[in-house]
Design a binder for these strands. Sequence first.
DNA 1: CTGTATAAAGAGACCGGTCTCACAACATAT
DNA 2: ATATGTTGTGAGACCGGTCTCTTTATACAG
Lengths: 356, 356
Amino acid sequence: MEDSAHSKRSVTVADVAKAAKVSKATAARVLGGYGVVSAKITDKVMAAAAALEYRPNELARSMSTGRSGIIGVVVGDIENAFFSLAVRGISDAARLAGFNVIIANSGEELDAEKSAVDLLIGKRVDGLIVTPARCDSVDHLQHVRRAGVPLVLFDRAIPELDVDAVTGDDRDAAITATRYLIGQGHRRLAYVSAMDAEDGGLTDIGRISNSAVRERVEGFVSVLTEAGLPNPLHYIRLGATNQQQTDSVIKRLLSEGSPPTALLASDSLVGLRIFKSLQSLGLSIPKDVSMISFLDADWTSVTVPPITIVDQRVYEMGKLAGERLIARIERAPLAVERLRVSTSLVVRGSVAAIGR
Amino acid sequence: MEDSAHSKRSVTVADVAKAAKVSKATAARVLGGYGVVSAKITDKVMAAAAALEYRPNELARSMSTGRSGIIGVVVGDIENAFFSLAVRGISDAARLAGFNVIIANSGEELDAEKSAVDLLIGKRVDGLIVTPARCDSVDHLQHVRRAGVPLVLFDRAIPELDVDAVTGDDRDAAITATRYLIGQGHRRLAYVSAMDAEDGGLTDIGRISNSAVRERVEGFVSVLTEAGLPNPLHYIRLGATNQQQTDSVIKRLLSEGSPPTALLASDSLVGLRIFKSLQSLGLSIPKDVSMISFLDADWTSVTVPPITIVDQRVYEMGKLAGERLIARIERAPLAVERLRVSTSLVVRGSVAAIGR
DNA sequence: CTGTATAAAGAGACCGGTCTCACAACATAT
DNA sequence: ATATGTTGTGAGACCGGTCTCTTTATACAG
């Protein structure tokens, strides 16, 4: 079999030039689409290139131009619907501007995030979108800036970093959802997040290293406080990182002396886990417990009852982040900003009105 | 502000060499981790590199080594849980072997797929995993092979291409699911897919350009035939590409003289759409209609009733594809193979037993 | 004390593009 | 006629690494 190509040296401009009997510079002008070349020679070169099946080596091109046409994205977990939707938005924005996307998973681990960032910088991406796993560790991100690579934070902001961030309006979203619950008569509200934590409880809001979660908790707490409810931090629980953890978090919550009547899930994965927990405990939603989840995930609209959610418009967030980054790459004169994509409460059937 | 780095030229081995007062070659040996260098000089170079915050330019490295350390993945739609799970599997396999992943979306469009493939080849990826949108257009994939870039097909096979493919055991899966339905007493079974089609019906199975769908349909039809059921193609419907289309497909199906009693959904997106359609038509599952969906998607386990599914083990498929590709990249002497990942039927509550 | 083996460091070509500059050919101005 | 400008092409440096080949320094044998 002579077709079992053993990776022959690929065709270069020099090869095309030789075949077309012109100089390398001229062939490069035609193939690279720059400079001026006569029509006759253009045709000759194009013909030779087609005959040889020439494909430009983008690597070499990037080396001389200094632009790779790639934007790097570091996300927590592509498997999570939140991120895959965001990536879709980023990709669409990128493609529209002629950029490509290279994705790295951090698994929400700081070390993995650091090496992903390093790697992408090494690949000379033109810009970087990062979902920082922790908002209190900024060295590696600072380095991105010093390297002169445009950076946009996604979903979480780090004020002291002086860099664009695209997030939801997490505080307001939590406030809206919490007010709604209170409006429905609930007085004991729990907030459950997947954030890692030593113990399940929470003593100091300021210590939450994920700004999105922190701001939601702040909003949540502020409403409880303004409503004059006692001990607003009491029902905040972290660590719902998997089904088992969540089961135990929920079980503990509900076996308290005066258990919460409504649960607020920090993201759709936690929401799903809570739903399953409640289901396995034989509890009915919203009769026994009410719940609200973040993100309009697939599952939320087909359960019985359908879940009341905070719609985060993640696709738009992703798209906006992509557009912002590209603007930065193209040196648009913009002030550093925190862009908030507004959310909205989608009332479905998972919250009961409690008589007073 | 002197920190507003205006993209300074980045630090190179030459810079480090100068700072460490050694030759470029020596500095390169230390920084690249090859060749022999004395401990004293190694330290000096490392110190200089650290002081200057040197980061290797992977682009340049790739140019000389001819390896980019990147594997390219072209998927139909990252937003689809099927693909995001697969990408996760691929990424994990890649990371384990020290490769990175660059993802491109084809949107299941042939043209987009072609340009994505071209682009990734241009970026000199070390290998390519492609979910071919159509199994009857092979030119661009043939070109990948001629370029000497290892290729693995994902989810769909193209026999005439003589290239590895990782797929589910689609035929068997469909057979199992269909037999199960028949075993439960169903005699009129419909198969619904999102594949694009001129009209909704199907006349020639061989013409289905997606091998996964084709094989499932073949399995489906073979069981109906062996069971002696008349007109097995009658209830096969394509074109359930969005909610509206699906609504009309389902409405038409169910308003036939003798409507099907069970629906088989070709993937989890179609399954979800069908579920919503049935819901909006006020039909109860499984009392009025039974259904089975492919893929163990989030939503399938929390509906009422939970959905009986064909578990595709997509993560394993992705991982296997990644591993296979890496083996190819590393020139393992392997015969071209079609790797089938076995599926299993997970019986839940969406299929009723029909009295006979 | 010299000869040779060996280890360590330096010099420079190379990968495949881009891009600056030099130069040739021809048109227009003086 | 010579000076000036314009357009198209060629020559070669350059990007930042790798890697081969050569040179220099050190070790040990005779």
